[in-house]
Amino acid sequence: MLNYIWFGMMFVGVVVGIFTGNIDAVTAAAIDMAKVAVNLAIGLIGIMALWLGIMKIAEESGLIRLIAKGLRPITVRLFPGVPEDHPAIGSIVLNMSANILGLGNAATPLGLKAMEELQEINPDKETATNAMCTFLAINTSSVQLILPATVVALMGATSSQIFITTIFATGMSTIAAIAAVKFLEKRKQFAIQSGGNS
């Protein structure tokens, strides 16, 4: 899937670029974005180090395990493939809490920690597990209770009006994400196959 979308975006970009006369802009964008990608990744180092350090302390002191235990009833249903007391559950819960509270730059390191722990129990290191896809879909559906600071800054006094509409829409998208992964993970074209490509 990603193979087609990835190629499709570049292909459409080049073809449309030729017809609209934007081909120079397409070239420039390709080179610029390659640089942007590296800058983004490098920019993550500091904040990643900070949260991963704090997370290590939380792990050593048993906090993560405690949190994972508390939310077991929900997480067992969402991530049936992950052992109940696995540290991944703790990281997943922390990542979601950070997302709900609108702490974007804390959420990413916590999410990557969760991915690392999910990868430990993955038999095929190149292929995503059901739990990883579920986790990712929930993440991309943006569960949040707090409006992004940028939106508040732009909307000013009106932002309290869109508080409820945002919670509603984000709730709908999260439900849709969970329903979609649970439906799709059983489909043949998304089954785990060694050596296949999807």
């Binding site: 991309t140 559906s141 994400a177 799709l184 993970e185 999807s198």
Partner: peptide, 22 residues
């Protein structure tokens, strides 16, 4: 970012589900 951090190349249904949720 998430799949890249652990070297997952075959992403299965994650993208479709994510775009559907969007």
């Amino acid at each position: 970012v998430y799949f890249g951090s652990v070297g997952i190349r075959k992403t299965r249904h994650a993208l479709v589900a994510g775009l559907f949720a969007d």
